[in-house]
Design a protein around this nucleic acid. Sequence first.
DNA 1: TTTTATGCAAAGACTTTGCAGGAGA
DNA 2: TCTCCTGCAAAGTCTTTGCATAAAA
Lengths: 151, 151
Amino acid sequence: MKIKAYNKLLEELKQKIVENNLKYTEQREIILKTLYDSKKHLLPDELLGYVRKNNPKMNIGIATIYKTLNLLESFNMVNTITTEQKHTLYEINNKSHHDHMICTKCDKIYEFENERIENLQIEVANKYNFKLTKHIMQLFGICEKCQTHEG
Amino acid sequence: MKIKAYNKLLEELKQKIVENNLKYTEQREIILKTLYDSKKHLLPDELLGYVRKNNPKMNIGIATIYKTLNLLESFNMVNTITTEQKHTLYEINNKSHHDHMICTKCDKIYEFENERIENLQIEVANKYNFKLTKHIMQLFGICEKCQTHEG
DNA sequence: TTTTATGCAAAGACTTTGCAGGAGA
DNA sequence: TCTCCTGCAAAGTCTTTGCATAAAA
């Protein structure tokens, strides 16, 4: 199940690489895999940490992380979230579309889907003859856990 | 009309300054006024440009711009937009709540309001017992004008 | 008088770029 | 073989910070 989903992503990466006359490298696969395995949204620097931890024999640099993230983003294979502190977090784009609720106390990120909101966004875009390519929607606030831990 | 709205903002600023045991300065007023007068969302650097242009006798530094923007943001008197290129734009917060459609071709920003989306966001937050403090919603795509200028 | 704000320059954080050597097709 | 990729270090961009001076209360 899981492995199948990852293999599909890997095939997609390979295909995009060929399409664009680029080259398949181990680094690119490692970065894709690490993002895929991550349970949470990652900073480039955190991603590098995991990449190095799981591939101690290789010497991977932060520049490769950034270049690969930009590549994956151009392939529409990663999504980004910008926190209130202007940090950019990355996640693999292999799930159905979702948006994010971000707790400003514990920084935890919750995902949610809401088809009605999606439809209304399309409706708004249509009204303005705006050709929608993507959107970001992030709700900021205090999560349930942090509210109870307060007083 | 217009002047009244600005005076209201200025009073709000003065009040927040007193509440927080801070000091009222000409720079702070100038920055508020310049944001208020701006027809578009501004980068800190652009804001400085307008501030200097309209106040040639004063020597205002970029650090003051950043400090004041952060102050105004903490007072909830400005909103920010983050572009695809990760640039942060500022606008004065004196209108009813609205969201943004951003053309990725010409960078023009269109504002819209949609009460139904707002309500659904509240509904989602409630469902998760999430105490909502603010949200970001931005639609990216190609505006009508840029579509016709294409071919 | 006391505290905060300003403007400058320096420092900091994050990201991109140039380049020489290495790897992929 | 030829082209692209990597890792490093340097450079670049945006933002914050330390400090001496200036201004507000």
